[in-house]
Design a protein around this nucleic acid. Structure first.
Lengths: 317, 317
DNA sequence: CAAAAAAACGTTCAATTCGTTCACTTGATA
DNA sequence: TATCAAGTGAACGAATTGAACGTTTTTTTG
């Protein structure tokens, strides 16, 4: 019945493998956020433990006390086998197993961007292939998406609260219903310290432009997994590009629907079809902004050259 | 359905995740103001519970919201003002405030179905109206949906793990991208003890039928907020109906796209356009199954008459 | 309306946790 | 080498917690 699963310092100390005294000291030093019962007993949220473990490069020796995955198995099997395990778990709709695998990799200090690219996206790509071969049903893929989005929400709440001054927003265009890439982008940007908020899927271009001028983010991302044949993408995109130029937002695009042919006609700040690319861009752009703020001669110029390239890890029903 | 402002210590203890003993002790120490019945039973006012929770920072540790006057107000003034507060929070994209409001209502022991109907759905209906009047932008509505779905996931994990024998699945049809009603249905059914899993949105009829025969749920729900003009809904729906008949699944339908004209041509087990209707159906159907199992003469018959009716609380972009 | 079922009472008791103190290890410095 | 600062783990009595129990009140049911 507990919304936020709370555990005692003793449980955490056993899970991490340190003495209870040390753990209580860390709590009192503020390294771990705690809540107190009316009688003064400390209670620690599991997500806080996860955050702490990851920050401090610790290992969960006995994760079972926290209802977390047995690190012994998962942490070692790494990304490759994690991907195949994950795919079958997603196909079977086994949310618990999916959560275990993902958290396991997350606790093993793998960056979120890598988990997104090489495990989650990879698993969904393979599911898409199976679906093409009639070996998987659409409902399995959809159910898997629901599960994946939930896990990403769980990961999100393990992150430290973002710096509110670095706003980033994004979403998908009209007719593109695939929410996973945009949710991933939100997660990755938050991991990089941005206050990223996904606006959702299937938004009209006019509304996206409106959001840019209203919210005035430093980064705007656009995930394009599908383009409706009926719309003039290039023309509509140009409006977005202009809105970003006017407000000084960095326009980041990605998605498997953006063919090279299409990209040549677009103006943007960066093309990332991998979450790892997005992450590096987020970090560098952060530094760009910081140094621009330093030299207070308001140089609003944003480089418009960056252009990573690889394949896009998505499938579109 | 007790709509009282007073709750018992046991309820409160379960809500905040401590033992009943501790809670009674705190009451006797004066940390929680209580009133007594003639027979000596403690009764605690809802507002007192919310105050206590917020003072102690027990549930929902949110570092930024330590002092949040609007929310503490919101808890007491119940559903009606909760709805208007919620709407502005959703429009502003203030996820923390939304979470506060919803959880205050949840702590106040309002059933999830009521929160869904009279607060969430109601707020979105009003947002839809504002949008029609050009007072709200689509991106605000979408961002609000994202937030709402996240909160519903949070609520979901507060619930006790469901009885795995009572399976229920559901989703939306091809072209219907509105996920909130289906997510609500999942939440409400889980609250009623069902092992409900939403398959997601925009699923082809064939895939829905496949899911029914594969998973063999006891309940199958279908949320219909939008029907593509290009498909023959009645004919396709008949296949779903048959699949449910064959497998003994109770077919529950809802959604504002189901006009009376349409419904007359459909065969289903129950029509619910309100989550409260769905909840009562879930409970009664649970009893039906239990009694059917008792009289082991496998009576697979399912009544096909139930037919609640009101308006459907959804908006479709 | 009375009987049965469910929920809450008050109490007791073992287990857990608190805060504090203290001995020990480690690494840098005089 | 001796010394100091800092972090760790163990131990202690005092306090808190959660579960058990039999009894009483409230609610449900026939």
């Amino acid at each position: 019945m507990e919304m936020s699963d709370l555990v005692s310092p003793k449980q955490v100390s056993r899970a991490i493998g340190v003495s209870e005294s040390s753990l209580k000291r860390w709590c009192d030093q503020g390294l771990l956020q705690t809540v107190r019962t009316a009688g003064g007993h400390r209670k620690i949220e599991i997500s806080e433990v996860v955050r702490f473990v990851r920050d401090r490069n610790l290992v969960l020796r006995d994760p079972e006390v926290l209802d977390l995955p047995p690190a012994s198995e998962g942490a070692e099997l790494g990304l490759v086998r994690g991907q195949s395990l994950l795919m079958s778990a997603l196909l079977a709709g086994n949310e618990l197993l999916v959560r275990q695998i993902i958290f396991d990799l997350y606790l093993a200090k793998h960056p979120i961007s890598v988990i997104c690219d090489e495990v989650l996206a990879s698993a969904f790509r393979e599911i898409g292939e199976r679906w093409a071969c009639k070996e998987a049903d659409p409902f399995q893929e959809r159910r898997g998406c629901e599960i994946a989005v939930r896990i990403m929400f769980d990961l999100r709440r393990c992150q430290r609260p973002p710096d509110s001054s670095l706003n980033a927003i994004g979403g998908t265009i009209e007719g593109d219903q695939y929410s996973i890439p945009s949710t991933m982008a939100e997660l990755v940007l938050r991991e990089a310290g941005w206050n990223a908020v996904s606006l959702g899927t299937s938004l009209p271009f006019s509304s996206l432009a409106r959001a840019i001028t209203d919210i005035r983010p430093k980064i705007f991302w656009l995930s394009v997994s599908y383009i409706q044949p009926s719309i003039d993408f290039i023309q509509e995109f140009a409006k977005l590009s202009k809105a970003c130029m006017d407000t000084g937002a960095a326009l980041v695009v990605g998605g498997r629907a953006l063919t090279e042919n299409l990209r040549q006609k677009m103006t943007y700040c960066a093309y990332c079809d991998t979450m790892q690319h997005l992450e590096t861009f987020a970090h560098t752009h952060q530094r760009v902004i910081a140094s621009a703020a330093e030299s207070s001669t308001g140089d609003e110029g944003i480089e418009r050259t960056t252009n990573h390239s690889t394949h896009l890890p998505e499938n579109q029903p």
